[in-house]
Simulated scan of single mutants.
Amino acid sequence: MSSIAGTKSSLTWAVHLSLAALVLLWLFPTVGLLVSSFRTSDQIATSGWWKAMVPSEQNQTLRTNGAQDQIQKDGLFVIEGNLFENPGKATISVWGTSSQNIDAYKAGDTAELKKEATVTVQSNGDYAMQGPEEFSGKRGQRIFVTAKSPPEFTLSNYKYVLFDPTNREGMAKAFFNTLTVTIPATIIPILVAAFAAYALAWMDFPGRALLIAAVVGLLVVPLQLALIPLLKLHNEIGIGKGYLGAWLAHTGFGLPLAIYLLRNYMVGLPRDIIENARVDGATDFQIFVKIILPLSFPALASFAIFQFLWTWNDLLIALVFLIDSTGDTTVMTKQIVELLGTRGGNWEILATSAFVSIAVPLGVFFAMQKYLVRGLLAGSVK
């Protein structure tokens, strides 16, 4: 029955379900990172990102005002105020004066303190302490509360990461350093590979088959094997550590795939167009610039997506070929690793920095995704 027109085989449904599962597996962490980047540290610590739209309940340790704020009223010493820094955003359900019994009282109840003093806490955080003797101490009385806070989103995380001049993490600088590495490291191999691919596809010269085989063989060479020899070569010729060394390293490691991908695409172009251009007197350079490059745009865009993603998310080459002692060339991947070490508890800063680092690759991918499949399938079907 699966072969009848209008029906779908079980394999087709399995493919669709597998594809949906992969999309969800990729989507959930990305959405979670985006939501967490707009939340406060308290909300991240008390509930998951999937509960960002519902009120969250958390335990807090707050303090009343100190003795310097007390006044005399009707023969009693009184200290009044609100426990929250931003009154009106949270509602207290239970509270206590001891860490061992934080839910001893409900909102509106009165608790007894030392020296016949009392304290009353309302649901909105208002409190009133009073006693027959003068209060002492600048820090005030500790109050343990269980409060329910409404959903709250803020842009302060992005302001701190990108624009705050006191931000020692330098994420904004690392962002531009990453662009400085990524853009040339994407353009250079495309230019070199396009010329090489045209020569391997449409120009006859001795040893062309051996060069194609060498390109295919280089696809399986791990880049880790060439890091140290390449760094020694850079030092010997005077390049050393810097942007130029990183550009050349990314170019060398990306060229085999670029040449292989573009060559397969160019071989599949109609031969009649190229032969007619040669009959009309066009040179190889004119054919390459005016005919091959415009027709090969899907393959060029496909490789550009991969190369941009690889160089943007790279950490290994950045650690080896960039000077990072001064922080002037620190890229975002290394900056996030440092944040994990120095700000292990500030998850809102980590989430914001991580989403900033993936925002640009996401934009590039969605802007050029229509060319991805066409470029990857180049040369696979004749």
Rank of each mutant, 00 (worst) to 15 (best):
M1K: 13
M1Q: 12
A5V: 08
S9K: 07
L17Y: 14
S18L: 08
F28Q: 04
T46G: 05
T46Y: 08
S47R: 09
W50N: 10
A52F: 01
E57I: 09
Q58Y: 04
A67F: 02
Q70E: 08
D74S: 06
G81C: 10
E85V: 05
V94W: 06
I102R: 12
K115Q: 15
T120H: 05
D126W: 01
F135I: 05
K138N: 09
I143F: 02
T146L: 03
E152H: 13
T154Q: 13
S156G: 14
K159E: 14
F163C: 07
T166L: 14
K173S: 10
A196V: 05
L200A: 00
A201Q: 01
P206L: 03
Q224C: 11
G238Y: 07
G242V: 01
F253G: 06
P256W: 01
P256F: 01
A258C: 15
L261R: 00
L269I: 04
R278W: 04
F285R: 00
P294I: 07
P298M: 03
F303N: 12
F306D: 04
F321C: 00
I323W: 15
S353D: 10
L362T: 13
V364M: 01
K370N: 07
Y371N: 11
Y371T: 11
A378T: 11
G379M: 03
